[in-house]
């Protein structure tokens, strides 16, 4: 067994992408304890910077210690309870993964599909929301839906809302 020296590639696939040399250098700096006050200071800066790039004031903004799949699972594990109804928009492979997450955490997945590659139609989602509301025996207050679907679809297109899940709250 010998040291692994990877070839130098240009990464233009779906990810991981090219890592900037500054970041590789940063990773090579000396390890300190994860409870070391110096490390804690860096953690606080990291959280503030994450708030900036998410454009949020949310205090619960932090890096999960595992890749994006764990971030997805964090959301579903914490927010889905057995019996919850969750609408999941599938227009790509990660929608399938969200559905899997939902059912594993005891939720009921309601799938809204659109052609892979298209932004999921808000009309389709609204249809599902309406149908579910009618089936519910609990009265949830409903407001008249806004007619301005255009900006909303633009939001969907701009966000990689390749996948989005909506969890129905029971009152």
């Amino acid at each position: 067994m010998q040291s692994f020296n990877p070839p130098v590639r240009t990464l233009m696939g779906p990810g991981p992408s090219d890592v900037h040399p500054r970041i590789l250098s940063a990773m090579a700096r000396p390890t300190i304890g994860h409870l070391d006050p110096a490390f804690v200071g860096m953690m606080d800066e990291t959280k503030e910077a994450l708030k900036y790039i998410f454009q949020t004031e949310n205090e619960l903004t932090m890096p999960v210690s595992a890749p994006g799949s764990a971030g997805m699972e964090t959301c579903f594990a914490n927010l889905v309870e057995p019996g919850d109804k969750v609408i999941v928009c599938i227009n790509g492979v990660f929608g399938m993964r969200m559905k899997e997450n939902i059912t594993r955490f005891g939720g009921e997945a309601i799938v809204v599909e659109d052609d892979w590659g298209n932004a999921v139609s808000t009309d389709k989602v609204e249809q599902d929301l309406k149908t579910i509301q009618m089936q519910k025996f609990l009265r949830l207050f409903m407001q008249k839906p806004q007619q301005e679907h255009c900006p909303m679809q633009k939001l969907c297109a701009n966000l990689h809302i390749n996948t989005i899940a909506l969890i129905l709250l029971m009152r």
Binding site: F94, T122, L129, Q146, I161, A165, L166, I167, L169
Partner: peptide, 18 residues
């Protein structure tokens, strides 16, 4: 989509990996 969710009393989860 998120505002739609709130109109119908849902919470939304968004994937922003890419």
């Amino acid at each position: 989509m998120c505002k739609l969710a709130h109109q119908y009393d849902c919470i939304n989860i968004v994937d922003a990996v890419t």
